[in-house]
């Protein structure tokens, strides 16, 4: 549906210019709901504006539904329903009037126009404000009018730039439900910087940071990137011997022990942090060795669990070029307590 090859957008010229989008290539297939993820200023909006035909590209090739966005701009634009980031609308028009204008502009034949407008209003849940001036609408309604506008000509492809920005939680849920329904009939590319949004509505995700593509794949691919940030071992036995045994295992950088009140008598909770640059195989080996060392030291292992980094940390790792995920991170929400705070 969309094919983007080596897309570059450069703002400014000469040495003072900078690439807002830098050599990005990706594909979106028919019927997919794809999340376009990245922190603020990553180049999401710029990319979507290029796809929608509003901005020109510096170099690269974009085809939408088989039409080159540069050479067959008209045909390409007819296939797209675009909703810009701030949802600009004409405040002096009424909702139904506005949508009828947009339908005419998007070349919906006269006899279909009323039906298409009603349909779009129903899908976007704005039929109850059809005769209200857009200037008097709340943010949530304006957002949905923008969505209705994107839908009104029934384009096969929807490009939505931060459709839930600035909404309250209830409205966000509503908009997400609408988008999920739309995914059944349309190909959807939506941008966001909120991870849970992608989790809630997208089948695939494209992550960009600082204008570069940093990851692409299904939601499972992304969650597989969640690395074990550490290891928790619950053991029964002598605390000092257990600490010494685990501390000696190669691959484990640091072991701390704390006994939260909840742990039953005689058991200890050891928290281990991995050494830097430990790969998956190394991690697995270190877990085995740690358990073996504990058993050899006369301790009984009751529980072995990995501390996973949260999706937010995966996002941070992917999008900040500064460093890979820290090995002794702040414990994610599911971890019981902060080892640093108590040791």
């Amino acid at each position: 549906m969309i094919s983007v090859q080596k897309l570059v957008k450069r703002y400014g010229s000469g040495p003072r210019g900078s690439n807002a989008v830098d050599d990005v290539s990706f594909e979106v297939d028919k019927g997919e709901v794809v999340g376009f993820l990245g922190p603020n200023g990553a180049g999401k909006s710029t990319t979507l504006r290029i796809l929608s035909g509003f901005l020109g590209m510096t170099s690269g090739k974009v085809t939408v539904a088989g039409h080159d966005i540069r050479e067959q701009s008209f045909e390409a634009r007819q296939k797209i329903g675009y909703m810009p980031e701030a949802v600009p609308l004409y405040p002096e028009m009424r909702v139904a009037e506005y949508l009828a204008f947009r339908a005419e502009l998007k070349r919906v034949p006269r006899r279909d126009r009323a039906g298409f407008v009603d349909d779009a209003m129903q899908k976007a849940n704005v039929d109850d404000v059809a005769n209200v001036l857009i200037g008097n609408l709340s943010k949530g309604y304006r957002q949905r009018v923008g969505l209705a506008d994107a839908l009104v000509a029934r384009p096969p492809l929807l490009i939505l730039d931060e459709p839930t920005a600035g909404l309250d939680p209830n409205q966000i849920r509503e908009v997400r439900e609408v988008i999920r329904d739309l995914g059944k009939e349309h190909t959807v590319l939506l941008s966001t910087h909120i991870l849970s949004e992608v989790e809630a509505s997208c089948s695939r995700v494209i992550v960009i940071a600082k204008g570069k593509l940093v990851a692409e794949g299904t939601m499972e691919d992304l969650s597989r990137k969640r690395r074990a940030a550490g290891l928790v071992l619950v053991v029964r036995g002598d605390k000092e011997r257990a600490l010494a045994a685990v501390g000696a295992v190669p691959g484990i950088a640091k072991v701390t022990c704390e006994d939260p009140p909840a742990t039953s008598a005689g058991t200890h909770e050891l928290r281990c942090a991995w050494q830097k640059k430990l790969d998956d195989a190394g991690t697995a080996g270190a877990i085995e060795q740690a358990v073996a060392a504990l058993v050899a030291a006369g301790c009984f292992v009751r529980e072995v669990r990995a501390v996973r980094s949260s999706l937010e940390e995966v996002f941070a790792e992917l999008t900040s070029s500064a460093a890979p995920v820290p090995l002794d991170p702040e414990p994610p929400p599911e971890a019981p307590a902060d080892p640093e705070a108590t040791s």
């Binding site: 634009r77 675009y82 701030a86 600009p88 947009r102 502009l105 998007k106 506008d149």
Partner: peptide
């Protein structure tokens, strides 16, 4: 200023 130009120019218009 209001950004509506973005909507106008992304419709199939010359």
């Amino acid at each position: 200023r209001s950004g509506t130009i973005e909507l106008l120019m992304t419709a199939p218009v010359s």
